[in-house]
Design a protein around this nucleic acid. Structure first.
Lengths: 350, 350
DNA sequence: TTGTAGGCGTTATCAA
DNA sequence: TTGATAACGCCTACAA
């Protein structure tokens, strides 16, 4: 039932030439062959439906033309956009991306890295789970082309494409102050091991002190679980109770999931933005747009966000990887893909 | 800078044994070695941070322990759920899934299949773009374990895990009739090359004739582009105009994107369900649930859907592939993952 | 318990 | 233009 795989030897035999000749034909050196040989090889290949083994070739040449893409969580819209960008960035380079999911587990991430590397991928694009993966540093230092996406690794300067996370936070804080908000509270998931969240939090703390004269981490940072609606609601109520009636308060979420969770919780509590509470945060998914807040017919007016552009990040990362593959010793790079502010109704007090 | 890769030979030399011995150690036959040898090999491996080359191993053994997963469009929530299910289904089998995106292009799908196969994946899970890919049939018939997901291939019975698409449609039509609707109009994307859509459409036509006595394909099937809101609105208006005032009409969308597009268009037109038009269709993403229609606090009442369960489909497909890998000659299987009806307000006339 | 030798399917280096 | 031949890194009879 299972036909034996046809190899270069079979073709050589069928065409009556040596495998060297066949190999030359396969690798685009057909012009080096005599017309006679070329035709016979061509025909033999067609007849047998021969396809060279990439495995054997990889073993010999040490090149696979595969790019391993490791995603912290392939399940998120963020990853989805990333994939689009990566695919487009890799499209004309001759490399094929294969995607793998770390499922938010550093251990899984390392297993995957291991298998990808041992299968000889020519480069790695990684949106890491851990923010602190020594194996990644090892790999990069041992000559494997590695480009990080979005999330950095502490204490090491690998190639990376990310977004400026500090500035948008500061801009937002300024905007809130301008609008007349007297207090801002940060809602965040645990931010350890996650550089964007951590950077946003730190920027928030600094801006909160500078602009609002607040230096209490405990008071204005709420760590919540977006999957626990009750918990979020409790946190919101608490904020309301600890804010003087005459002071306008705004909520700033550090990541998109949390922003959505806070939004839902406010809806459930019957709270309106900005009347009861201002609301803003990052949008990594084009979420606000998709939900209709930028459509002309949208009446609600929507929530203020700053949009990151994961698709472009993926694209840039792919391009960077390509140059890195060609020039392994070039100096490491850090590229920033700009974000755009979308000031909407939820923070408009005036 | 780039350290040479350490191979089994290096370890053998360092440990003062033959590479056979090292190989045995690597492959779990360590108990066959003398204590002395084992320890020296162990230490040598650790010291050198040696990792066997999966490529060389694959070439020799013809096994890669890789499963290629080809997704018609990795970007959809459907694919996202699939990935979760596949990962869980493969978790304990010793096989690693690598995901590739066909980006809705049959040509790309074939390129990807080619590279995966030539890299010796041990099996293929494919949610095909084309519904008509001869290469897939070739592969399956030539001994490559292949399991289709959701979408069939015409005229061939490959292994497949999918959902019953005909019955839910009929159930829905019955439900609509029971509720007092006098007319049902199908909204669909082009359904060629897409088995679920095609099956739903055919089931619709049959039920429409049987239950409502209608046999006009032209009148009650609207092919629309979900990405063109205007076009959808025009189609809806047209349906309204061609429906007698006293007759209740319902819209049935063949796939989730179209359902959402129709829903949005109705909102934009200021139409309410079921007052102005009934509305229902499939939900492949847990979309309705996520949007809050199943939450206790939901007031709107939501849209009637039948939910497919892509995660389970992925899981089942992975399991099936595993057995197929172990037993290539077993008879081909067709597994159906049940869908669940969610009757909500949008079709409740009584 | 260990080692030798051959081969997996290619490409690359020679020499012819 | 062509073809032996030796790798690439590993596994596996077969022998010892």
């Amino acid at each position: 039932m299972t036909p034996k795989k046809v190899t270069i030897n079979d073709i050589a035999a069928a065409a009556g030439v040596s495998k060297t000749t066949v190999s030359r034909y396969i690798n685009g050196h057909g012009d080096m062959l005599s017309d006679a040989s070329r035709k016979r090889v061509e025909k033999a290949i067609q007849l047998a439906d021969y396809r060279p083994s990439a495995v054997a070739r990889s073993l010999k040449t040490q090149k696979s033309y595969l790019v391993g893409v490791v995603l912290a969580n392939i399940t998120t819209p963020f990853a989805t956009s990333l994939i689009n960008g990566i695919s487009s960035g890799l499209a004309d380079g001759g490399y094929v991306p294969i995607f793998a999911d770390a499922a938010d587990s550093p251990a899984t991430e390392n297993r995957i890295l291991q298998t990808l590397v041992s299968h000889q991928v020519d480069g790695l694009l990684v949106n890491t789970t851990s923010g602190d993966n020594p194996r990644l540093v090892e790999l990069a230092n041992s000559g494997m082309p590695v480009v990080l996406i979005d999330r950095t690794i502490r204490h090491y300067d690998l190639d990376i494409v990310t977004a400026p996370y500090s500035k948008p936070t500061v801009d937002l804080m300024n905007h809130l102050k301008d609008q007349g908000f007297g207090r801002v509270v940060l809602f965040t998931q645990p931010f350890e091991n996650n550089s964007p969240r951590e950077i946003r939090r730190n920027a928030f703390l600094a801006a909160n002190e500078e602009l609002f004269g607040v230096d209490s981490t405990l008071r204005d940072v709420r760590v919540v679980d977006p999957l626990d609606p009750q918990g979020v609601q409790v946190a919101i109520r608490d904020v309301l109770q600890t804010t003087p009636a005459e002071e306008h308060c705004a909520l700033y979420a550090t990541n998109t999931i949390t922003l959505i969770a806070v939004y839902n919780a406010m809806c459930a509590l019957g709270l309106r933005a900005p009347g009861d509470l201002g609301l803003c945060g990052p949008d990594d998914w084009g979420w606000a747009h998709r939900i209709g807040w930028d459509w002309p017919e949208s009446l609600a007016g929507g929530i203020t966000t700053f949009e990151t552009d994961p698709s472009t990040m993926g694209h840039e990362a792919a391009r960077l990887l390509l140059t890195r593959i060609q020039n392994p010793s070039q100096v490491r790079e850090k590229r920033y893909v700009p974000v755009t502010m979308r000031l909407r109704a939820s923070t408009r007090l005036g």
